[in-house]
Amino acid sequence: MLDAAMRKLIDPPLASAATVLKKAGVSANAVTVTSFMPGLGAAIALGFGEYALALALILVNRLMDGLDGAVARQTVPTDLGGYLDIVGDFIFYGAVPFGFAVAAPEANALPAAFLLVSFIGTGSSFLAYAVVAEKRKITTDIRGKKSFYYLGGLTEGTETIVFFIACCLLPQNFPILAWIFGGLCWVTTLTRIAAAATTFRD
């Protein structure tokens, strides 16, 4: 819901940083692959209950996730780059709830499982829509130039990161936060299904 508005704020500084990386010969794919390390590290830190460290690594991961796209836009975007980016994103999104479940399984395992199922709903509805949109040559640039169609929703990247930050700052409240955010994810999934039913109707 907030991604389009956030792009107006973050694109200028990301473009400046991308210019520096481009001059240094750093490729977008290198940034994408490197960004996976702090994302994985965040999940490990969560598992050990190191919430402050996990928060810092989550922020680094998300910064680098935005930076790889900025570098790609200043060079040559590739299909492999788009593929690596989305695969890394979804592994990261799944790893964070898993880390909370490991940290406190009795309290967190069930809400984390619900959150993962909810993420599967948002992820599958997002990717399936993109596949059919590509087949039908439907395009959009509301969230900037992307490798494939980005369908919005109530819970997009910005909202998910705010949720992760809240969970790291208030880890004792992870269960209730996970139940609430997971429910909002299902609103996103259902609205995307409704959009597909309208757009793709033959």
Rank of each mutant, 00 (worst) to 15 (best):
P105K: 10
Y150K: 00
A166M: 12
V131R: 14
F164T: 11
G152F: 05
P175S: 08
L151E: 07
N108E: 09
K146Y: 00
S124C: 12
I142W: 07
P175F: 07
A103G: 03
Y149G: 07
A128E: 09
A101D: 02
E106S: 14
I142S: 13
P175C: 09
S125R: 02
A104T: 12
E134L: 06
E106T: 14
L116P: 03
A130F: 10
G144T: 08
F126K: 10
L170H: 12
T160Y: 04
F92P: 00
K137W: 04
L170R: 12
P97I: 09
L151N: 01
K135N: 13
L170C: 13
G121C: 06
L116D: 06
V117N: 03
A112C: 09
F163W: 13
E106R: 13
E159C: 05
S125H: 05
S118R: 01
I142L: 13
F92W: 09
N108V: 07
I138F: 02
C167Q: 02
I161T: 14
I176P: 00
L115A: 11
I142H: 13
T122P: 01
C168L: 10
F126P: 04
R136K: 15
S147G: 15
E159P: 03
C168H: 04
A166R: 02
P111N: 07
K146G: 01
Q172I: 09
